[in-house]
């Protein structure tokens, strides 16, 4: 192992500690590969229940990502470009769910949209709508925990973008909205994609808030992570096979994206 810079070797202590850190990530992945029942993996993953859970996970996580793009990017722009009273507080509220235990998020969502929730009860009284334990509830739970990744990534892109380019657009006769669409968004393109990928990956893996708020109904709210957890009780092989599938799907997307859009995940120079 040689250091990039010519002056001196890489200190052995750092190599050892770094290798331990690497093992923290690598060992469980290796264990998963070793323990997966390769002979029956095909039949497990093509079973109706597994396909149903996979399909539900993909649909809900993609819908979540699209919704996050639709409302999260404007929020990021407001946080980056406008000044208003209490902005720091607003930013904290909008990103709190990143550090909140997911089960707490689920409880909070029940208090909001549940049958006796502050939005949920009028919604049911007026429209007869019940959100908890439905597919939209899965999306709401995912949006709540995953959107901050998009907001923070895109906000920092807007912050670091060259503002004179925006000024140039304005002096050329572009309104603020035209400038947002035709200058700010293209400038932040790679960060928007990166933020969307992170959001999608977080949404795909969402478990705690979903099972608390949306429950566990096959076909409507039983996503792949929930199905995986449940199968642990009955069939360890099935749990291992489904975990494998989640690892493969996530890893594929990260690798496909890392080179262009996720510099921090790509190989360093």
């Amino acid at each position: 192992m040689t250091s990039r810079r010519a002056n001196g070797r890489t200190p052995i202590v750092i190599v050892v500690l770094g290798a331990v850190a690497c093992l923290v990530f690598a060992l469980p992945l290796v264990a998963l590969l070793v323990r997966v029942p390769w002979r029956s993996v095909g039949s497990i993953l093509t079973s109706a229940a597994a396909l149903e859970a996979l399909w539900l996970s993909i649909v809900t996580s993609v819908v979540t990502t699209l919704l996050a793009l639709g409302i999260g990017v404007p929020l990021a722009w407001l946080l980056a470009r406008t000044h208003f009273f209490g902005k720091t507080f607003v930013r904290a509220v909008c990103t709190l769910s990143m550090v909140l235990p997911p089960v707490v998020a689920g409880v909070a969502l029940l208090a909001t949209y549940g049958r006796r929730g502050i939005i949920g009860s009028p919604l049911e009284a007026v429209f007869g709508l019940r959100l908890p334990f439905t597919m939209p509830a899965v999306v709401i739970a995912q949006l709540f925990v995953a959107m901050p990744f998009l907001v923070l990534t895109v906000e920092s892109a807007f912050n670091s973008a060259d503002q004179t380019v925006e000024d140039a657009a304005r002096t050329l006769g572009a309104s603020a909205l035209y400038t947002f669409v035709h200058v700010n968004l293209p400038q932040a393109r790679s960060s928007i994609i990166a933020g969307a990928v992170l959001t999608w990956a977080r949404a795909l893996g969402e478990f705690g808030a979903t099972i608390t708020f949306a429950g566990n109904f096959p076909g409507t709210t039983r996503t792949l992570p929930i199905a995986t957890y449940l199968s642990l009780e009955s069939d360890l092989g099935e749990a291992l096979a489904m975990s494998m599938m989640l690892v493969v799907v996530s890893l594929t997307v990260l690798i496909a994206m890392r080179a262009r859009f996720l510099p921090t995940l790509g190989e360093s120079r």
Binding site: D162, T164, V165, D167, A168, A169, T171, L172, G173, A174, S175, Y178, H182, V183, P186, Q187, R189
Partner: peptide, 26 residues
Amino acid sequence: VGFVFQQFALFDHLSVLDNVAFGLRA
């Protein structure tokens, strides 16, 4: 008002032609 910025502030995501056409499009 036309403004020529010190660092030019061109739109990197557009071709030169579309840079020049930007104001008219807007």
